[in-house]
């Protein structure tokens, strides 16, 4: 595996993160329907970028760029990579980005129905999961992991905990996306969904906190695991703070004359940091599975 493929995979993951930020800006500025047609914008490839057209058409342009990069990544992996499952994952990324583009078009054509908008935001995170995973799988540290054999003998296993953490974060991201798309900046957030999102935040904090504590206590000397665990912790703390700040700003928003910069910045930062917590946990989970082995007893049971 060449360094170039890994670097390109990192570039695609980075571009996807940037695309998530652009998408969050569209929602926070209530710009989703600023351009009423799709796939063209006002019948043009490049309309005048005034008002909220800047956010909506800008999002479309960045999405097109990410789509092109994903095509290139799938092709590069196809020709440079020997592992069949990685090749398949490259094509899965391409399928996901195409589906995501179509969902984006549907949000415009159907005038932002909540289910489609939430699905669009959710698939964005799943696509991000794939691109981050591709970046991990093509990295040197994945191909040549540390020699130390690490036994995963606790119950529940550390690997299971990382999977659980990833699932609760994904559910929380879906809840957050649904909450954001349930009300525009001038409407009050639906209380039930808000409560569910707060409950999700507590669950994520507990599960991820427990997982990271386990990793650091048992395998704290193994940088391969400790580093993503520490990064995930730092991001989680930041994310909780951003969540409170974004909520306070958003609560005051309905009495504002328009979406104000501080409200938009805080909510977009909250979305972006959520994606980073997700990415750090993906890396932690993949590395845990790469490095850790079951106990001898597990192997004996499996053999039997």
């Amino acid at each position: 595996m060449s360094k170039g493929v890994h670097r390109f995979a990192v570039l695609v993951a980075g571009a996807t993160f940037f695309l998530i930020i652009a998408g969050a800006n569209v929602t926070s500025h209530d710009a989703g329907l600023a351009v009423p047609d799709w796939p063209l914008s006002f019948g043009k490839f490049f309309p005048k970028m005034v008002g909220n057209v800047f956010w909506e058409h800008g999002h479309r342009m960045i999405a097109t760029g990410v789509g092109m990069l994903t095509i290139a990544l799938a092709l590069i992996i196809q020709f440079k990579e020997r592992r069949t499952w990685v090749k398949r994952l490259g094509w899965t990324a391409l399928a996901a980005v195409i589906a995501q583009g179509l969902l984006g078009g549907l949000t415009v054509k159907l005038l932002l129905p909540l289910a489609v908008s939430a699905a669009h935001a959710t698939l964005a995170q799943l696509f991000f999961l794939i691109t981050v995973s591709l970046a991990v799988f093509t990295s040197r540290s994945w191909i040549e992991p540390p020699d130390t054999a690490v036994e995963d003998s606790d119950a529940p296993s550390t690997r299971s905990l990382t999977v659980l953490a990833l699932i609760v974060i994904l559910v929380q991201l879906v809840l957050g996306a649904t909450l954001r798309h349930s009300a525009t900046w001038d409407e009050e957030l639906p209380f039930g969904l808000l409560l569910a999102h707060i409950g999700g935040a507590i669950t994520v904090a507990l599960v991820l906190g427990f997982t990271v504590t386990r990793v650091l206590r048992r395998h704290g000397t193994e940088k391969y695991l400790a580093r993503p665990a520490l990064i995930a912790t730092g991001l989680l703390i930041t994310q909780l703070g951003l969540g409170v700040a974004a909520y306070l700003a958003r609560r005051a928003s309905p009495s504002d004359p328009q979406p104000l910069t501080y409200m938009v910045s805080l909510t977009v930062a909250h979305v972006a940091c959520g994606a980073l917590v997700f990415a750090a946990t993906i890396v932690l989970m993949l590395r845990a599975f790469r490095l850790m082995r079951g106990t001898q007893r597990d192997y004996a049971l499996a053999a039997a």
Binding site: L175, S182, P190, G192, L193, L194, L195, A196, G199, T203
Partner: peptide, 18 residues
């Protein structure tokens, strides 16, 4: 127990908002 309760409250809240 706490995790279960939080998950339950979250699900109920989600259902009520839907």
């Amino acid at each position: 127990l706490w995790l279960g309760l939080i998950a339950l409250v979250s699900l109920l809240s989600l259902a009520s908002s839907c």
